[in-house]
Amino acid sequence: MKAILCKAYGPPETLVLEDIAEPEAGPGEVVVEMKAAALNFFDTLIIENRYQTKPDLPFSPGAEMAGIVSAVGEGVTRIKPGDRVVAYNRFGCCREKVAVKEANVTALPNDVPFALAAGLMVTYGTTLHALRGRGDLKPGETVAVLGASGGVGQAAVEIATLMGARVIACASSEEKLAFARRFGATDTVNYAKEDLKTRLKELTDGAGVDVVYDPVGGDYAEQALRATAWRGRYLVIGFAAGAIPKIPLNLVLLKGCDIRGVFWGAANEREPDQHRKDVEQLLDWVAKGELKPHIHAVYPLAETPRALEELAQRRALGKVIIEP
């Protein structure tokens, strides 16, 4: 079968397409024939050995996929061959068949296309876990979403809107902010031109925002924390800006606010039943037309390096999908 392989750490152009042996389903595993896989920004880091997940070489990028089960291993009871499924696998999905733990597989309704389902695991799963599981977001509250046009940022705009919140989208260009407004943002902040703290305070009549959703970090983190309301929740999603900020803890004391870590991958391992419930909720929203993930582009497997370059250069608006 065909697979995109990282055989030596480097930029996307160093990846190669090769024939490898098909996987076998071990105990507790299922083999899924990949119909669509999705890429995320962290895939650009994994292939350069700059991410906390460090698979042994060679490996395939791609942490999420949708497809049809072709085989099941000993002890598998919930899934059977022929089932349509979505799956999260940390890495390894950019190949024609993938062996996945049964615990990381969820049944896929017939009325949800593979390409839409493939991109739900990481960005939307992270966001639902963040806003509902960690942020305790309530209808009527205000959410500031940093990096609002990126993968998790767009998901946060959509899900927060579905949950009845007021969304303030924050991004670095008018084009990106216009994109965020398409998915439910009612207000916007261009933090390349405006002071983030000042503008968020203005938009909330001085009260500050109830929840900050921050996948960016860097210089914007402290500004956003300073704009958090009394008893606000600051959600640490990631550090796309590169720098991990150092936060003055006196701000947390003075505001009576919380800084809450969002480690979706670890939550999946520790709380698999809740993970499955979140995925089922996302699939239900998609099936009902209430959630409409935007696909930036679909690439054939052989063009995975070009797709990763789109992510590395921050040109992708929405999900980047790979099909075999």
Rank of each mutant, 00 (worst) to 15 (best):
Y213T: 05
G238Q: 11
L251F: 06
W230P: 07
R181I: 01
L301M: 06
V262E: 02
V236T: 13
A224T: 12
N250I: 09
V189A: 08
P215G: 15
L225E: 09
A185M: 12
L200M: 13
D205E: 14
Q281Y: 11
E303K: 15
P300S: 08
I259H: 03
E269L: 15
R233W: 02
E202T: 14
K255G: 13
D219M: 05
A227T: 07
E222G: 04
H275D: 09
P248C: 06
R199V: 05
G261W: 04
A221Q: 05
G261I: 03
W230A: 08
R276N: 12
A302L: 05
Q274G: 09
T188P: 11
E202H: 12
V211H: 02
Y234F: 14
V262R: 04
L196I: 12
W264V: 00
L301R: 00
W285M: 13
G217A: 07
A229G: 01
V252H: 02
Y213L: 09
V189P: 11
D273N: 10
Q274D: 12
G208H: 11
Y220P: 00
V252K: 02
A287E: 03
K255C: 08
V189T: 07
E280W: 07
I259K: 01
V286K: 12
A241F: 01
L203R: 05
R199Y: 03
L301A: 01
G256K: 00
I237V: 13
L235S: 09
P248E: 07
G208I: 03
G208V: 04
L254V: 10
E222F: 03
E194R: 08
E269Q: 15
V209C: 08
G184A: 10
D210I: 01
P293G: 02
Y213I: 08
P215S: 14
L225K: 08
E269N: 15
L251E: 09
E280V: 02
V189Y: 09
W285L: 13
E303A: 15
L200E: 07
H275K: 14
W285H: 09
G206S: 11
G218D: 01
